[in-house]
Structure formats: structure tokens, C-alpha cells
Design a protein around this nucleic acid. Structure first.
Lengths: 194, 194, 194, 194
DNA sequence: GATGAATGAGATTTCATTCAT
DNA sequence: TATGAATGAAATCTCATTCAT
């Protein structure tokens, strides 16, 4: 029974990702999502209180999975630079493996400032914390300069973010994660010679 | 007469920036923009064929101004790193001086993939060209590693972009451009010690 | 359930006939029709895809009812002239009994050539077929001259049509069908003496 | 000067006939007519007080020309039946020679009952008077049955009207006036044999 | 819980007409 | 007289959400 409920929620979220990715949030109809999920329009409102809530749920779920996986996989790595590479690799792999989800992340979540503010204060904050933690660790180990860790985290996030968006827009079939290492190297060592 | 027409167009664009920034594109009413601009609803459609066209016009105009100014100011600078600092400084100053415009740039232009594709193939491409040119110049002068210049340009743009967005979301009153130098230094020399 | 749906459709069509007749198609508001039908504006669009579609539906339904009734009542009559009288009588009675419907038929259906072309190739064609059939029958029985049956049908239709329109415009209370017999007699025997 | 004024009025009327015929009254824009006539939008309002007035003017002018020509040409004819043939011939020739005008007459003038009422009480009444006069003359000469002349006129008008409309809808290239004689013969002698 | 018909507020855009030049 | 930019009222249709079944 409980499982059935979870299943239905899953179906609705998956349908929403697909539809939002295809048409954009504002041009997606709740009834379309319902159809794609194989449920009645009204059913969606049993599981989610509104269309926007459904968008939030996608974000929450995906980021939670991602944060948890990152934490777990980082446990066995000790070199901060390797850790950064793993984080970036996971980020790119996750989104690269699911273009629809990537679309929703890069485009649909940026719709309005209120939404973004809320997001960046919740799940996204956890993600930034992880990156910041690694930076700090690197600094403590004497590997990184004494820059503001939050500042560094933003830079790294900005780089990854741009890579994903640019991959989406290019609409070519290259592997998104292929550049993870060079990306981190450039972030860590800069573009200047020597 | 011609002037008057240009003036009215100006007024409408300024009003649109203000209203879009305040409410977001989808939650802004054309009639609101008209009221703010001091014209009749229908007048807007004499100058812009649709609400979306109006959004495009904001982007085009702002980026054109920016690209032109950048080109001019770069002429007198010869060090590639200084050039990058100037570009970043200008980018941050421009948007930092006009929070409404920044809002429209960071949030409202990202509404849908089609819109973004179109934008990134037009004006934005010019901007990327400028950054790429500087990177290439640095490489030719033996200052920068032989990385893909487009890749480097994306990284830099991603960093700047994240700074702006994060400044918007933070909603604090720090000067956006204050970090231009350290940002470029980090980009150029990396976060690693030595 | 099914019945309820049909009922609601009925109500909307009846309301539309009334409102179209009163104000004309172009000066009728969908919201007015909704109000008259006792449903919400949006409900109309569940049953009809557009305002024009609603106009078409009125025509289709009314003509279908009329064609079916004509066919049935003609079965028991054998004299072609009597058949023509019956057709004309029915036509006049139907519209004479429902001034609103007559208004829509005579005025609102003639709005544009495209609409008329479409109509005349569908339901109206059936109606012409019936008249033509009777003319042909009369010719086969040696009662009528060997004129082109389609030409004769057009003449008869033109006469009836003008009677209805002129009755509408006159806005007097005479029974429209009272002239059915004399009308057919004139059509059949002409206005010339002997 | 006066001539120039008349010329401009002419141009506007001709443009209006063309545009109304092409798109229908409601789907024609005043600005389109202005463009076609080679004048500014506002200029139309110097000559006609409104869009509807312009439609009226077309009707008035065309019918006036027609009524006057009919009267003149009928003077030399003495046989009522020949007179009817001439009237019908002229009616069909006039509209047959100018498909755009025909379109406006058959379709655009029937838009709303108020308009039709007004028309039928003014210019159209003159036209009916002419037909009625011929019928009466035929009756006085003992050629026609003692039917109500107005009734007969309506019948004849209905027949002609249907012929024109059906010609328009058919959109074939046959000469509209070719059936004038047979049409009148059928009207006068009926469809019955002997 | 699930359904899907019904709701009704609401927004973009059009276009006849005006009027300052 | 002629112009055409500006006006602003107004209407179709959409669609998130509800709720009786």
C-alpha cells in the first residue's frame, strides 16, 4: 500500500521532469503531466499541493540523492583535489546521464528569484557545504591558498554550472563528464603557465 | 520626431526592465509596463511585436552597449591578464550598477531553452569571442597554458555569472565589482599554493 | 452521466441560438452565452472548441433534424407536387416556429464565404439532394419539364430563403408557413395566366 | 478640386470593395483599406464617418447606379416579360462582371439584421418597386395571374439572389448572366409541363 | 484514494477611431 | 486637407485547481 503510493509519486515526478524538460515549466500543463503519468489530473493534487510544489519536489529529490551519494563516495578519498574531481565528476555524470533532469536543473529552476532564494537556502546550501568543506580541508593541509572557501565554492559551482548549461544548449552528443578532471585542474592550478 | 520615437522606445524598455525585475517575466503584465512607461497598452505593440520581443530587445540593447564599451576600453590595455580584469570589472560594474537589469539578465533570460539558444548564438557569441581573443593572445604571448580557449572562456563566464547571481540572491549591499581582481587572479593562477 | 453531458450541450446550443439571434454572431460574447446557459465560460470550451465551432454546431444540428424529419414525412406522399408542398411547409414551419433559429439561419450563417462554402458542401447538400430528387421524380412521371433539376432546386430554395428573410425583416406576426401552398403553386405553374 | 475629392472617395470605395470581398467585413482592417487606397488611415474618416458607413456607401452607390440604368433601359421595352428578362439580365451581368462587388452584396451586406432592415427600407425598396411595377403592368395587360405583386417580386428576387450566391460559392467560371432567360421563363411559366 | 468535469479569474493583443501636427 | 502615431476598451480562450461522485 505504502509502496503503491510511493510508486505513484515516482511516476508523477518522472512525468513532470519529462514534460518540464520538453516544454518548460510555464508551458507545461498539469493535465499533460497527469496524462504522461497515467493518472487523473486531480490525483496530482493528492500528492503535491501545487504545480510549483511539484517543481520543488523534483529539485529536492534529485539534490538529496546527489548529496547523499557524494558524501558516501567522498569517504574513501583523502586527497582534496581528488575529492573535488569526484564531486565534479558526479555532478556532470548525474546530469549528463539524464538530459531531462539537467534541463530542469539548469533552466526551469531559475525561473524566479523567490524560488531560487528558497532553493539556495535549503538543499543547495548542503551542496555548497560539501564543496566548502573540501576547500577548507585543502587549506588546512597547506595545499590551497587562504582564499575565502565560500568564494572558492561559488567559483567551482559557477564553472560546473556553465559547463552543463553550455552542454545543453550545444545539444551535441559529447559526454558531459569527460572534462571533469581538466576542469578541476584548471580550477586548482589556473590557466597561467607554471 | 525621430528622437521622440526613440525616446518612447527607451521609456518602454526601461519600464520593462523595472517591471520584469520586480515580478519576473511571466508575472509581469504588459499593462503594468505600459503604465510605468506612461503610454497606452497598445502603444507597446507599435514598438515591439510581442511581450517576448520586448524581453529580447532588452537583452540585445544591453549586451550591445556592453560589448561596444568593452572593445573600446580594451584597446589601451596590452597585458592579457589586465584585459581580463577589465572585462570582468566592466561586467560586474554594469550589472552591479543596475540591479534591475542584472535581475533580468540572470533570471529572466533563462526562461526557456529556445530563448537561450537564440541568445547564445547572437549577441552572447560576440561576448565570448572577446574573452576567447584575450585568452588566445595570452597563449601566444606564452603566458597561458595551451588549453582550449573556448573552454577557458566558458570557465570565466561561468565564474562571473555565478558571482552575479549569488550577489542578487544574497540581496546584500556589497559592491559587486570589488572582487573582480581576485576573481581573475584565481582564474589565472588557481587556488593551489605556489 | 452521458445524459447530463448531452443536456449541458443542449443548454449551450440553445443559449447560443438565443444570443446570436439577439446580437448577431460578432456582437455576441461567449460569456453572455455561458451566462444564459448557466455554465461557466470555460465550460463552453469543453464542448466546443471555439465560438465558430459553436455556430457550426447549431447549423449541423438544426439541419440534421430537419432533413431527417423531411425524409420521414415524405415517405407517405406520392405526388411530387404534394411532396414539394410538404418540404416547403416544413421548412417554413420549422423556422417560423423558432424566430431565433431562423435569425441564425438567415443572417448569421452567411457571415463569410468560407463558412458558407463549407456548409453548402455538407449538410446543405443533403437538403438540396432531397429537393432535386422530388424534381427528378416529377420529371420521370412526366409532370415537370426537362429542366436541370439542380437549377430547379436552387430556384425553389431561393424562393423559400427570401420568404424567410423577408419575414424576419418585416418583423410582423404573420404565420410564415401560411404561404407554403401558393408558393409551391407559383413555382410549379408560374405567374403567367393559363 | 471637387473632382480630386471625388476621385479619392472613389479610390477608397474601390479599395473597400476589394478588401471586404477578400476578407469579409469583420476581418477587414480599416488600415488595410487605407493602404490599398493609397491614403492614410485617418483620411478615410474625412470621407466616411465609420467603417460601417463605408459599407453602406458601397451598397448605396452600386444600387443607385443599377436602379438608374435599369429604369433607363426599361423605357424602350414594352413587353413585361421582356422587361423582367432585362432586369434579371442586368442584375446578373452587373454582379457577374464584378466578383468583388458581388461578394460584398451577397455576403457582407447580410451581416446583421439592423443593417438589412435599413437597407431594405431604402435603396432596395426602389429596386423592388421596379419589379413590382412590371408585375403589375403584366397583370393589367392580362398576362399574369392576380397574385400579390410584392409576393411575386420577392419570389423573383429570391431566385436571382440564390443564383448569384450559388455562383459565388461554386467559384467556377461560367457566365452568371447566361441563365437570365431560362430563369425568367421558369419564373413566368413554372416548371410544370403544359 | 481516484477521477475528470467544471470553474472563472485573468492576460495578451487587436483595431476602430481620434487628434496634434 | 492629410497624416499616422497613439489610444484604450474589450473579448476569446486557457488552465490551475476544486470537489461531487
Amino acid at each position: 500500500m505504502k509502496l503503491k503510493k510511493e510508486e505513484k509519486k515516482r511516476k508523477i515526478i518522472d512525468a513532470a521532469i519529462k514534460i518540464f524538460a520538453r516544454n518548460g515549466y510555464f508551458n507545461s500543463r498539469v493535465s499533460e503531466i497527469a496524462k504522461e503519468a497515467g493518472v487523473a489530473d486531480g490525483t496530482i493534487y493528492i500528492y503535491f499541493s501545487s504545480k510549483e510544489e511539484l517543481l520543488s519536489a523534483i529539485f529536492d529529490e534529485a539534490l538529496q540523492v546527489f548529496v547523499e551519494e557524494s558524501k558516501k563516495l567522498l569517504e574513501d578519498i583523502h586527497d582534496p583535489i581528488e575529492k573535488l574531481k569526484k564531486i565534479v565528476f558526479l555532478h556532470l555524470k548525474h546530469l549528463g546521464a539524464n538530459r531531462d533532469l539537467a534541463m530542469v536543473f539548469q533552466i526551469e529552476f531559475r525561473h524566479n528569484i523567490v524560488f531560487m532564494e528558497r532553493l539556495s537556502k535549503t538543499r543547495l546550501a548542503d551542496y555548497f557545504k560539501i564543496i566548502e568543506g573540501v576547500i577548507l580541508e585543502g587549506q588546512e593541509k597547506g595545499l590551497f591558498k587562504e582564499l575565502n572557501p565560500r568564494f572558492c565554492a561559488k567559483i567551482l559551482f559557477g564553472i560546473i554550472d556553465e559547463m552543463v548549461t553550455s552542454w545543453l544548449i550545444a545539444n551535441k552528443n559529447y559526454k558531459l563528464e569527460k572534462d571533469a578532471d581538466i576542469l578541476v585542474n584548471t580550477f586548482v592550478y589556473g590557466i597561467a603557465k607554471k
